[in-house]
Design a protein around this nucleic acid. Sequence first.
DNA 1: TAAGTTTGTAACCACTTGGTCACATATTTT
DNA 2: AAAATATGTGACCAAGTGGTTACAAACTTA
Lengths: 189, 189
Amino acid sequence: MKKDRAATEEKIYESFLTLLEEKGPQAVGINAIAKKAGVSKELIYRYFGGMQGLLLQLAKKGDFFKSMLALHDKDLATVEDLKEFAKAGTQELRENKLTQEILRWQLLENNEVTRDLFKYSNKEIGKMFAISNKDSSLNHAFQLMIGGYVYFTLLSKFNKKFITTDLSSQESWDNFDKAIGKTIDLFNK
Amino acid sequence: MKKDRAATEEKIYESFLTLLEEKGPQAVGINAIAKKAGVSKELIYRYFGGMQGLLLQLAKKGDFFKSMLALHDKDLATVEDLKEFAKAGTQELRENKLTQEILRWQLLENNEVTRDLFKYSNKEIGKMFAISNKDSSLNHAFQLMIGGYVYFTLLSKFNKKFITTDLSSQESWDNFDKAIGKTIDLFNK
DNA sequence: TAAGTTTGTAACCACTTGGTCACATATTTT
DNA sequence: AAAATATGTGACCAAGTGGTTACAAACTTA
């Protein structure tokens, strides 16, 4: 049998990411990861330092928010820029399953194992919210609506509908975007 | 040893509620409930039909939303009524831990065991949202903001802060309320 | 009192969990 | 070639999971 530590580490880390992305926080455990990677779980402890080490690596690499941070670099001088930013950010969130699962995870626990990951994740989100801090009440309304977007996005994994809103149709998300846009306009009049 | 089925059922059901309220969805299992109730787990299957039966009973009794539904009966003729309604509803949500855990649960799974509970829960929430359906874009903005409120409420269990917002201070929640109020005003101008 | 039924317990089942261990097999170093 | 080290495996551990079974004790009915 050939031995290749680098390849093994890669297999483990990728299995961890895939598992988290597809099955969510509750499904990622040492046994499941080792099984998916087709490797002895001892190696997870030896090479990563267990679950905590894997999460730390995810935090450092920051694979999840990198596409959202690309948005953040834009200039947000005008009201239209802000609206575009919100629209692009929410769409990105809906496409990025990994980010969704990390956000879901934050609703479930916060302990020594997860702390590093969440700390980093929050720091990155903070950068994105640093923009809308002129008008305080707009800032709060904006935060609420983005929070709602996150909520409905997470909800859509297991629920096709929220009350009358069809969470599986693009039209619904477009309506949410329009609502955000209109609210921004009203606050800026 | 004395035997009293009614009292035993009560002990089981109460233990289940308390466990869910205090430790969340992940902590409620047959073993944990039986242990907390100080009773053999066989009785949970015999009297309730297992976990699914317990959730069904919770759905039927609907202990969680009853205080929110009291709000729903109000007349919502004026804009001020709608603002008051939103404020009272969000405050009630923050105080009702049981409702919070059921909403959290909906973000985690949706299977044969939980289906009945969630179906009922969604029906009740739907009643509360039936009010703001005049202006479509206000309706969506309203839904987003309430969704954000839910999100931040659930988040506050494990996170003291969201970016710069202190989720443990009453002032933050007041600011959110003000933001909702101002948004409603702007849409009605 | 005797028989039948309800209520309750504890042991047991197969399976999964995170974690450690001794050991074997490659690969490097001497 | 021999010794040392790095890599990988599978067995094992204690604890916990949901679920079932056999049996005892209490209460009801006959």
